[in-house]
Nucleic acid binder design. Structure first.
Ligand SMILES: [Mn+2]
Ligand SMILES: [Mn+2]
Ligand SMILES: [Zn+2]
Ligand SMILES: [Zn+2]
Lengths: 155, 155
DNA sequence: TTATTATTGAAAACGATTTCTATTATCGTT
DNA sequence: AACGATAATAGAAATCGTTTTCAATAATAA
């Protein structure tokens, strides 16, 4: 049995990126990162906003979006669209590349990785003389819970 | 050498769906479908709008979006987000499921299908006791033109 | 400290969707 | 075929989630 399933996130992780890029270590960026690190995976900007507001009551929603965009450029987060009309932010500082299973009934998002698929993607690209920079594989359908006892947690 | 690469689209294709669903065969729906069928693959609502305006000068952009949404529900089109901030509509009445290679330099979109990958997706789903309804695989990077002579057609 | 910039929050703009009322396609009746 | 009732649809305007613009503010370096 393991302890510390997830390695503790260095509070310096953001500072490092900020300094490396000659940007400014503002109160807002610190607070947004702290909140982002503390929340569940695949949260929306709105969810982060409501949490940040508790400590930083004068912050604007545009700062949240801008700062999450910054985290993405730093490689600390990735923005994802799972088709519910809200962009979700995936923390990727402690996890390598993965793809997603999305339950359209209850909204559950499951992560997976499959090296076999990734190799075949490269093969497809090679045939088209295409160089892959990044990719996205999303499987939409019903999770075990939702197709077993049909009701589901959401609408 | 073949003639008629693409089978001619039945003008009745839309009418059939409209009648089957007890909806109304309006002038606007006919015109939007005619334009959609005549245009390139993966066009935006705005591009369709500009074309439809030539024949139907009083039409609203919301009707374009609504009607394209209708085509999607009918299985005649699919909406796709390739990350340039515009939803693109893929005609699928004459083509079976496929995935996409997207050049982030020049915007070129190439279609492909790979049964091997599709089977592995099912395998992943089975392991998670997940039932796939639909999926999306998008490979982003540089097309042959763009990584050979670096300039590209777009900005 | 001051000067130099990057960053902030408010407001405007964007692409897309929804709401609302006037219009119109369809159907049952002549 | 023409009518009238009725329910779906159209276009305008409002709204949504997100991005951009811009003047005021604040982090950094001199
Ligand atoms: Mn994830
Ligand atoms: Mn396509
Ligand atoms: Zn579910
Ligand atoms: Zn290209």
């Amino acid at each position: 049995m393991r302890i510390n399933m997830r390695a503790p996130v260095q509070p310096t992780l953001l500072k490092t990126q900020i300094t490396r890029n000659h940007l400014r270590f503002t109160r807002q960026r610190q607070e947004i990162f702290k909140v982002f690190v503390g929340m569940a995976r695949h949260v929306t900007a709105e969810e982060i906003y409501r949490e940040v507001l508790k400590k930083e009551s004068r912050i604007g929603l545009s700062t949240i979006y801008r700062t999450l965009g910054l985290f993405c450029r730093f490689g600390l987060a990735e923005a994802r669209q799972f088709g519910d009309g809200h962009t979700r932010y995936d923390p990727v500082y402690d996890k390598h590349h993965h793809d997603h299973l999305i339950c359209t009934q209850c909204g559950e998002i499951t992560e997976f990785e499959n090296q076999h698929i990734e190799r075949l993607q490269e093969q497809v690209a090679r045939r088209h003389r295409f160089v892959i920079r990044r990719h996205k594989l999303e499987l939409y359908g019903l999770c075990a819970d939702c197709h077993d006892h049909g009701s589901g947690k959401r609408g």
